[in-house]
Deep mutational scan, measured.
Amino acid sequence: ELVLALYDYQEKSPREVTMKKGDILTLLNSTNKDWWKVEVNDRQGFVPASYVKKLD
């Protein structure tokens, strides 16, 4: 499943990933309501769920 980055996000820990507004990311896990695991540029990590939106 793919998600769209709604905002820029700068990683604050090694478990997170940086994304730019408009990026298309692969959603790996959305079981946590606050932090979703995504893959971007061959890196996996977490981003705030409120910063991304699922693409239909």
Rank of each mutant, 00 (worst) to 15 (best):
N32C: 10
E39R: 11
V17Q: 04
E11T: 08
A5R: 01
Y51N: 07
T26V: 15
Q10V: 14
L6G: 02
N32E: 10
L4G: 03
V40R: 15
K33Y: 08
V40S: 15
L25R: 01
K12F: 06
P48N: 03
P48Q: 02
S50R: 14
E39F: 07
T18N: 07
D56I: 12
K12R: 14
K21D: 02
L25N: 00
N32V: 05
Q44N: 08
L28K: 06
E1K: 12
T26P: 15
K37S: 07
V40F: 15
Q10F: 15
T18P: 07
D34V: 12
V38E: 00
V52P: 02
S30E: 13
N41F: 13
S30R: 08
R15C: 15
L25M: 13
E11R: 12
Q10T: 15
Y9C: 02
S50D: 11
L4N: 02
V47K: 00
Y51A: 13
R43G: 04
N41Y: 14
L4R: 09
M19C: 06
V47C: 03
L55Q: 06
K54G: 06
K21Y: 04
K33P: 14
Y51K: 09
V47D: 02
V47S: 00
V38S: 00
M19F: 10
K20P: 01
G22A: 03
M19V: 10
D8W: 03
Y9P: 01
D34I: 13
Y51G: 08
E16Q: 10
M19R: 00
P14G: 10
F46S: 03
L28M: 07
D23N: 07
N29K: 06
R43C: 06
V3F: 08
T26G: 10
N41V: 12
W36K: 01
T31D: 15
L25P: 02
R15S: 12
T31L: 10
D42N: 14
W35K: 02
M19T: 03
K33H: 11
V40H: 15
L55T: 07
S50C: 14
G22P: 00
T26A: 11
D42Q: 12
N41S: 11
Q10K: 12
K20L: 08
G22V: 00
K54T: 09
A5W: 00
A5S: 05
N41L: 12
R15M: 14
T26Y: 13
Y9Q: 00
Q10H: 15
Q10Y: 15
S13K: 07
W36Q: 01
S50K: 14
E16W: 03
K53M: 14
L27C: 09
S13F: 06
K12G: 09
D23E: 13
Q44Y: 07
K33C: 11
L27N: 02
S30G: 11
R15Q: 12
K12L: 09
Y51C: 12
A49M: 04
L4D: 02
K20N: 09
T18Q: 04
G22T: 02
Q10D: 15
K21L: 06
D56T: 12
V52D: 02
Y9I: 01
E16N: 06
P48G: 01
V52F: 06
N32M: 09
L27I: 06
T31R: 09
Q44R: 11
V38R: 00
W35E: 04
V40I: 15
E39D: 07
S30F: 07
T26C: 13
W35D: 01
Q44T: 11
T26S: 11
V47Q: 01
L4P: 00
S50P: 07
V52L: 15
L2E: 06
D56G: 13
D56A: 12
L4T: 08
N29H: 08
G45N: 01
V3H: 04
L25D: 00
L2C: 11
T18L: 03
K12N: 10
L4H: 05
P14K: 10
I24Q: 05
K54Q: 09
D34R: 11
W36A: 04
A49G: 05
K21W: 03
S30I: 07
A5G: 04
V3I: 09
Q10E: 15
Y7M: 12
L27W: 01
Y7C: 15
N41W: 10
V40P: 00
E16D: 06
Q44G: 06
L55C: 12
G45P: 00
K33Q: 14
A5Q: 02
R43S: 07
N29M: 08
L6W: 04
L6A: 04
N32Y: 08
E11K: 14
Q44V: 14
N29I: 08
A5C: 12
T18W: 04
P14Y: 09
N29D: 15
K20V: 10
V17N: 04
F46Y: 15
V3A: 12
V17P: 01
E1T: 15
K21C: 10
T31H: 11
L6T: 04
Q10R: 10
Q44W: 08
W35A: 02
E16S: 06
D23C: 07
D34L: 13
N41P: 11
K12S: 11
V40D: 11
T26M: 14
S50E: 11
M19N: 00
W35L: 03
W36H: 03
Y51E: 04
K54R: 14
D34M: 13
L25Q: 00
G22N: 06
D42Y: 10
E11G: 15
K37E: 14
T18H: 05
D23H: 05
L27H: 01
K20D: 04
K20C: 12
D42C: 14
V3W: 10
K54H: 09
K53Q: 14
L28E: 02
D34Y: 15
G45D: 01
K33T: 11
L2T: 09
L4I: 15
V40Q: 15
V3S: 04
A49Y: 02
K37T: 08
S30N: 10
N29Y: 06
K53V: 15
K33L: 10
W35P: 00
V17I: 14
D23R: 03
L55F: 10
V17R: 02
K20M: 09
Q44H: 09
R43V: 08
P48K: 04
Y7T: 07
D56Q: 11
E11D: 05
V17S: 02
N32D: 15
P14N: 12
V47Y: 01
R43A: 06
N32G: 10
V52C: 14
V40C: 11
V38K: 00
F46K: 03
L25S: 02
A49W: 02
T31P: 04
W35S: 02
K37V: 13
N29Q: 11
E39A: 13
S13W: 06
D8Q: 03
A49P: 06
T31A: 12
Q44A: 12
S30H: 09
W35M: 06
T31F: 09
K12I: 07
K33F: 08
V40L: 15
D23L: 05
A5Y: 01
V40W: 07
D34P: 02
A49H: 04
S50G: 12
D34E: 11
D8V: 02
E16R: 04
V52A: 03
E1P: 12
R43H: 08
E16H: 06
T31C: 12
L25Y: 10
S50T: 09
N29S: 13
D56H: 14
M19K: 00
L2V: 09
K21F: 05
V47I: 09
G22F: 05
D42I: 06
S13N: 12
E39Q: 14
L27E: 00
L27R: 00
V3K: 00
S13R: 08
L6N: 03
K12W: 04
R15I: 13
E1H: 14
D42P: 06
T18A: 07
G45V: 05
N29G: 07
D56R: 11
N41T: 09
K54V: 13
V52K: 00
D8F: 04
A5M: 02
L55R: 03
D8I: 01
W35Y: 06
L4A: 06
V52R: 00
V52W: 01
K37A: 08
P48S: 02
E11V: 06
V52Y: 00
Y9R: 02
Q44L: 06
K21I: 06
